[in-house]
Design a protein around this nucleic acid. Structure first.
Length: 290
DNA sequence: AATTTAGCCTGCGCGC
DNA sequence: TGCGCGCAGGCTAAAT
């Protein structure tokens, strides 16, 4: 499930592969993906930049339009073409080749390149907007909040410790729910919320406004730490996630607590418990996360 | 105004 | 073996 580190891994490869390419034909294979995709706004334009706003990607074009994309749970963007010299083996997470069973959109690029949008569950979306409309708190960015400082060139305003403290003090919702609220903090999803809380030794159910200032600071640092580690590992291929060259991330092999139900806590050895919180799988150590 | 819930969609694992 | 059913999950819109 692509969160900030996963989407960042996609962004880095896309920037390498498609910046400078000209968009030729666009094939939309699944009718529901025609909504918001007015092809003639982008055909013939050149890709000038690839940005990331939280979990949303923006492919910026030379003609003032941007293609914005949310991969949600199972979306994939895969590139094949001349800018990928030695493609690694296509992960088995990409079903039935390219185009495959779950390919919905194909962007034909110049010099024989192509960008494929796959999505098994079809929760992901893609739409074309004017680049000038991609502003902080705009509807097109679904009113995303501040972003934890983990990359140098994020277009969203940086989440500071002070701002983080204010956000937590303003709600009594469970801390994990708040961490995953994109309108408050952009980019943190289920995997990294679980791991950050484990690292900070804080129970996911704790009301946000009841954290001590010490805990707030530790949690802030923990969020940054786990996100940076996720980026370093190229993201987590827990589900169907792959990067544009078709290879997988590594973080799923190094999660601190996520997905470790019944396994020993990496800190104290206690059995990791799984509960449902806000409809999402929540993993924690009942001994060291108080 | 803040918070919770249903729905989008498909594959998978479970029980019968 | 095979079938149906519930569950998973990010995010939005609607309901409370």
């Amino acid at each position: 499930m692509p969160e900030l580190p996963e989407v960042e891994a996609v962004r880095l490869q896309l920037a390498k592969f498609v910046v400078g390419s000209r968009i030729g034909e666009i094939e939309i294979l699944t009718p529901k993906y025609e909504v918001g995709m007015d092809k003639k706004k982008v055909v013939g334009a050149r890709v000038v930049n690839v940005r990331r706003f939280g979990k949303i990607l923006s492919i910026d074009l030379s003609n003032g339009f941007s293609i914005i994309i949310h991969l949600k749970l199972t979306g994939q963007l895969i590139y094949r073409g001349p800018n990928l010299k030695n493609p690694p083996p296509l992960s088995s997470r990409v079903a039935e080749g390219l185009p495959g069973k779950y390919t919905h959109i194909i962007f034909k690029l110049d010099r024989g390149g192509a960008l494929y949008f796959n999505d098994l569950r079809q929760f992901g979306w893609m739409k074309i907007v004017q680049s000038s409309e991609l502003k902080f708190q705009s509807d097109f960015l679904t009113k995303l909040g501040y972003e934890p400082p983990v990359v140098l060139d994020s277009p969203l305003p940086v989440l500071t410790l002070e701002e983080f403290g204010k956000i937590l003090a303003g709600t009594k919702r469970a801390i994990k729910i708040v961490l995953m609220d994109q309108t408050k903090i952009a980019g943190v999803g289920n995997i990294y919320a679980n791991d950050a809380l484990w690292l900070a030794e804080i129970n996911p159910l704790r009301p946000a406004n009841r954290l001590t200032s010490k805990e707030v600071e530790l949690l802030f640092k923990s969020i940054i730490k786990v996100l940076k580690n996720g980026i370093k590992m190229g993201g987590s291929s827990e589900n169907t996630f792959v990067v544009p060259d078709g290879s997988e991330g590594k973080y799923q092999n190094f999660t601190l607590v996520y997905g470790r139900e019944g396994l020993p806590c990496k800190r104290c050895g206690e059995k990791i418990r799984k509960i449902s919180l806000g409809g999402r799988g929540t993993y924690f150590c009942p001994n060291c996360q108080k």
